[in-house]
């Protein structure tokens, strides 16, 4: 019998706490597949965020550090500077990366830290119960924008991928989605390329993955 599909070695054989329909599971898998494809699991250290993916360290068969809210790129900087031959990635949501951690992501990217950032954008604070995020679209109703996001009050949704792409140092920045098999395949390619940029070019890479929040939207 030939095995044609199996769990990536870098993904732990455990149940996750993610809600039914949440795309974190798919994205975790794509990250694990990329790490397996390059056969770098023994050299990889992940950094978990604060948010729905705070427990990501339970779901990968990898060494992990859990960062304070928004600080994952600074923590990853510390790891990578201490161990330059290791593969370091952060896994962050949009509240974490695009709001409280804007300084850390901008400067890690600007320094060209050789890390890979997986930026999962579902346009809402999922873990805390569906509050408005910096990425919430105009007019969208959340528990803290009950009349819809009013840009005259809350500002416009921030476009982190575009913002970071204006910097000189980042080598690869992409935005993908995981809402269809075709998009999942595109996301897989992008995540793999992002790790390749770190492994082969020693440069900064980020993939924004448009996601959903089946519980709060």
């Amino acid at each position: 019998m030939i095995t044609v599909f199996s769990r990536p070695r870098s993904l732990a054989d455990v149940s996750t706490h993610y809600c039914p329909g949440c795309t974190h599971g798919i994205i975790h898998r794509l990250v694990a597949e990329a790490i397996d494809d390059f056969d770098v699991a023994e050299r990889t250290i992940g950094v978990a965020p604060v948010g729905c993916a705070v427990l990501a360290y339970n779901y990968f068969n990898l060494d992990f550090q859990e960062a304070a809210h928004g600080r994952a790129p600074a923590v990853a900087t510390g790891i990578k500077r201490a161990l330059p031959d290791r593969i370091v990635f952060t896994y962050q949501g949009d509240g974490d990366l695009a709001s409280i951690g804007t300084a850390e992501i901008v400067h890690a990217a600007n320094r060209g830290e050789a890390i890979t950032v997986i930026y999962v954008n579902n346009a809402i604070y999922g873990m805390t119960g569906g509050q408005m995020a910096p990425t919430t679209l105009e007019g969208q109703k959340t528990s803290t924008s009950p009349y819809g996001r009013d840009v005259s009050n809350a500002g416009y949704p921030i476009r982190m991928a575009e913002l970071l792409a204006t910097l000189n140092a980042p080598r690869y920045i992409a935005r993908v989605a995981v809402n269809s098999p075709v998009h999942v395949q595109q996301a897989k390619k992008a995540i793999k390329r992002a790790f390749e940029v770190q492994i082969k070019e020693n440069a900064f890479s980020l993939v924004e993955v448009l996601s959903t929040c089946p519980t709060n939207w």
Binding site: I45, A67, R71, V75, T77, E104
Partner: peptide
């Protein structure tokens, strides 16, 4: 490494200390 802030600096310390 000159960090972008004291907040970033202490979190870089966290990451590096975590590697031993």
């Amino acid at each position: 490494l000159q960090a972008e802030s004291e907040v970033a600096a202490i979190n870089m310390v966290y990451g590096a200390a975590g590697t031993g």
